[in-house]
């Protein structure tokens, strides 16, 4: 079976990691753009949130799809990490300089695990709102209809200094993961050639920085009191 061959091969798994990584990256960019609407004010952000939740089918379809992509990315990563460890062998180098490899590239598994942990916290925090159930009570009346006040939730959430600090550190790690991951996706998907290689590497680094700035801007602004209720 070709598909089974594909799934068994290291190259096949890496192609899946590339494709899913690229999808997760694209989602991160959209997510960031959505977040930044907080700077347009309460109405804009809440309109956006309402639009996203307009249809249960759409949002759940999207959530399930994204979850599957993330799960695939993680499963492939776990399988490959186990295989890579085995390939390296039991006898370690007494000295190993990891020539040419950036710190980010060598620590993708670790940064990946931390990012995953952060995402779980983030989902519990703002999506299921289980960490502080009082978030569920935050509503506003818009055009005569009651709706969830996301704006208030975000500000309340980030007014807790340790939460904001944790988010800022975590998005830094996301960026760190992406600083290697974006260019790596291009390569794993086979979209790199000598002419585009450098462009892709700069693109990856640039977006890692953009994601960090864009994502950290929200908790930082709340903490600094630039955005408030």
């Amino acid at each position: 079976m070709p598909l089974i061959k594909f799934l068994r091969s290291t190259v096949g798994l890496k192609i899946i990691m590339g494709v899913t990584g690229a999808a997760l990256f694209a989602f991160t960019v959209i997510h960031m753009v959505g977040n930044l609407q907080i700077f347009l004010g309460q109405e804009a952000l809440n309109n956006y949130a309402q639009m996203l939740h307009a249809s249960d089918e759409v949002i759940w379809g999207f959530r399930l799809g994204l979850g599957a992509v993330a799960a695939l990315h993680i499963i492939c990563a776990v399988v490959l990490t186990i295989r890579n460890r085995a390939a390296r062998g039991s006898e370690a180098y007494a000295e190993y300089a990891a020539p040419g490899a950036s710190l980010a590239s060598r620590t993708m598994a670790i940064s990946g695990v931390i990012v995953a942990a952060f995402i779980i916290f983030h989902l519990l925090h703002f999506t299921t709102q289980s960490i502080d159930p009082s978030f569920k009570e935050l509503t506003e009346i818009h055009k005569g209809v009651e709706r969830h006040d996301v704006y208030a939730m975000v500000i309340k959430g980030f007014q807790v200094p340790w939460v904001s600090a944790f988010y800022i550190i975590s998005v830094a790690l996301v960026s760190f993961h992406l600083s290697h991951g974006i260019a790596s996706c291009f390569r794993s998907m086979g979209l790199t050639n000598p002419a585009y290689r450098e462009v892709q590497e700069w693109f990856g680094l640039a977006f890692a920085v953009i994601i960090f700035v864009g994502m950290a801007a929200v908790p930082a602004a709340v903490l600094l009191g630039l955005v408030k209720l």
Binding site: T10, A86, A87, G100, S102
Partner: peptide, 19 residues
């Protein structure tokens, strides 16, 4: 690729050490 995997080599994580 099949033979490479069979020999037990690991996957490429694009670290550039090889290069």
């Amino acid at each position: 690729v099949e033979a490479m995997d069979k020999e037990g080599f690991g996957a490429c994580t694009n670290t550039n050490s090889c290069e």
